[in-house]
């Protein structure tokens, strides 16, 4: 059971809703993933276009908990405004704090992320900051009172998987709040590895929406995250330098 603020979740997969080719595929992929939390972005409506696609209606979002992000913000002030806009919908009280500090790498601005998280906690939000894999920053965010920490596995949409497992494991080890590995997951084994490191959950988007078969990849991710969690709970064996026979030595009928 994953607990984020007041929410209790069976699924440890958080799924993004960006860059799917069509609504039918997206809806089926969301269902196949088993997720209970969907992320969204907040954007201006096009006032000249009456027939804009209505993602919320297509996905039947009342079945899910909504996690709006503050993507597009490069300052704490902008992130707070986007979060407040999202909350004014009356549909959500969680927010993924995402304050980008570098347009090329999309790496988060740690100072603004910290400031935005503090302000949003004061406003009563359930705050899930997207951060780099900086161990001290993760601790500082936890000290502020955020409800989960979401360190990147690697840059957003890069599909590079976990490039710094040491830092992730140190963040996980020190945290007493959920750690959700967010961004950079490329394939199912990346998600499994994140869970085997002890992550409480994984947030991903492009790995599913960009797969040749997003529905099948959504299912793969669900199984990968479950598998990784079981593996973590079961505890892996220690690595040895030499072989260790699985079959007994005694009773062999050698002549």
């Amino acid at each position: 059971m994953l607990k984020i603020g007041k929410y209790q979740l069976e699924s440890r997969l958080l799924l993004g809703t960006g860059k799917f080719q069509d609504f039918t595929t997206q809806k089926k992929a969301v269902e196949a993933s088993g997720t209970e939390i969907l992320t969204f972005a907040v954007r201006r409506m096009n006032i000249f276009e009456q027939n804009q696609p209505d993602l919320l209606a297509e996905l039947d979002v009342h079945q899910y908990k909504l996690l709006p992000n503050t993507a597009g913000a490069s300052t704490a002030e902008e992130a707070v405004r986007i979060a407040k806009l999202a909350k004014a919908s009356g549909l959500c009280d969680m927010v993924k704090v995402e304050v980008i500090g570098c347009p090329k790498t999309l790496l988060p601005d740690p100072v603004e992320t910290l400031k935005a998280s503090e302000a949003l906690l004061a406003e009563g939000f359930i705050v899930l900051p997207y951060t780099s894999d900086d161990v001290v920053l993760a601790r500082r965010l936890e000290e502020l009172g955020v409800h989960a920490i979401m360190p990147a596995a690697s840059p957003i949409g890069s599909g590079q998987g976990i490039i710094n497992p040491l830092n992730l494991s140190l963040i996980i080890e020190q945290a007493s709040i959920p750690v959700i590995v967010d961004a950079g997951i490329g394939t199912a084994s990346d998600a499994t590895r994140a869970m085997e490191l002890g992550a409480d959950g994984v947030l991903l988007n492009s790995a599913v929406s960009g797969a040749n078969d997003p529905i099948k990849m959504a299912k793969a991710m669900r199984l990968a995250i479950e598998s990784g969690r079981y593996s973590y709970e079961a505890g892996r064996i220690a690595k040895k330098r030499y072989a260790s026979a699985s079959s007994p030595i005694e009773g062999m009928s050698t002549v």
Partner: peptide
Amino acid sequence: VEIVSFVGGG
């Protein structure tokens, strides 16, 4: 006046 909505995002 600003009118916004939810769109796909990660």
